[in-house]
Design a binder for these strands. Structure first.
Lengths: 233, 233
DNA sequence: CACCGCTAAACTGTCGACAATTCGACGGTC
DNA sequence: GACCGTCGAATTGTCGACAGTTTAGCGGTG
């Protein structure tokens, strides 16, 4: 998820890379976090020199970090004007969900053909984790693990490029949703709504999985977009 | 297509932006072109200082250009090692086509519901252009206009994010295919194979369009991947 | 009071320089 | 002959500086 360890999911490598000492990546992570917890709000200008001063570095790595976040869709650039935190509107979130649905349904369909019982068990365990976190009231962590579940599902589709796209989309959605300031649904409901997906996977029922997953995703999409429209007019 | 004019397809804007004086973007275009016509070959190292010398600039904009191309998947970075032209293998091209199929089918399905007769006519005219270019033997241009046709189709789906992704994918495919050094099929066949898509669009037959488009794309995918496996072993 | 142009401050794009790291060649060792 | 460590050249990551542009504030004008 962070930019520090790009290869967080090494395809069977024994050791993951050591955390990069790269200044730019660390700065990008900081900015990402700042966007996530609202210290940077959408539309706000991000000044290279100011960030550089605050971080005690020169402008060069700050610039690279912002360009990285730009490529991930979290920062927008107006040439000679500077960098700004990307401000999502409801239509854009709707587009993002549309894209996510397209990718995830595709990956899930491919996954059904390749999935093993062990894989299904891992996914089921992840759902149990979601329920537990719902009980404990760890909402932030639950959101993170919810994305992780869907990421696992995408990964089982076997197309790593799709997984990378999913990561980008997830980051954007989290940034967009963060500024709602509240969750879009009851955590327990969310956790439970994954059960039907596990069922479909156990039976390797592609059609059913597609149907259920689509409903699952459109539920979230509908809630989020509706909330967004209310907040922003 | 180029990086110089990001808004090359302004959604109804009267004037396109003036060509950016941005050094980084122009450098990126040069490098992109160099990859396209084989002056830079996959796997080759790209040295910042050398590029900067050749272009008569400092390293800073070169670095930004390469990072931009990295975000588009044409350049890969090994930290503290430098930049390299991304070397595609057959499996990766297969993944890219898989992704393209997923996106384009989705966009096409959405397009059917929104498309006007004028839109269909524009697409049909584009197919005629493909045929004409096939006759004239302008293969390079035909390839470009072929992508343009599919881009138009994606755009009619209404999700601009999908279009941007398509652009990225197209760039990667062209870079990957460029090093085959030859076309993967008869230009006239390629042009004609678009006719069935127009037919399906005229009848607003989503199911048929999906079927035909899928076949259309898998044909290209099959040819390219097969050729690639032969060349590279 | 709204609008316009001017001036100063702030900022971006670009540049050249330096330290730390990496790469390649060389010679030494088994 | 293959392997290992060393040394010098080349390269990356980072830094501070400068020119041109943008922005914000201010006073003038209708």
């Amino acid at each position: 998820m962070t930019n520090t360890d790009k290869a967080s999911q090494p395809d069977g490598a024994l050791f993951s890379e050591l955390p990069s000492a790269d200044l730019a990546s660390r700065i990008a992570d900081q900015v990402l976090q700042a966007i996530g917890d609202g210290r940077l709000i959408p539309g706000q200008k991000v000044t290279e020199a100011q960030l550089a001063r605050e971080m005690g570095t020169s402008r060069a790595p700050v610039r690279e970090a912002l360009r990285l976040l730009e490529s991930q869709g979290l920062i927008v650039t107006h040439p000679r004007r500077g960098f700004f935190v990307h401000s999502y509107d409801a239509d854009e979130l709707d587009d993002i969900y549309d894209l996510r649905e397209c990718l995830e349904l595709h990956a899930a369909e491919a996954a059904v053909a390749r999935i093993t019982d062990a894989d299904v068990n891992r996914l089921a365990a992840q759902v149990e984790l979601l329920k537990q976190l719902a009980h404990e009231g760890q909402i932030q962590e639950q959101v993170a693990q919810d994305y992780e579940f869907h990421r696992m599902l995408c990964a089982l589709g076997g197309n790593m490029r799709v997984v990378r796209l999913f990561d980008q989309i997830a980051t954007q959605l989290r940034a967009g949703i963060a500024l709602l300031g509240r969750n879009y649904d009851d955590p327990w409901e969310i956790a439970q709504s994954h059960d039907v997906l596990i069922e479909a996977l156990r039976h390797k029922d592609a059609a059913r999985l597609r149907r259920e997953l689509k409903e699952h995703l459109e539920e979230a999409r509908f809630q989020v977009v509706a909330l967004f429209r209310n907040d922003k007019g």
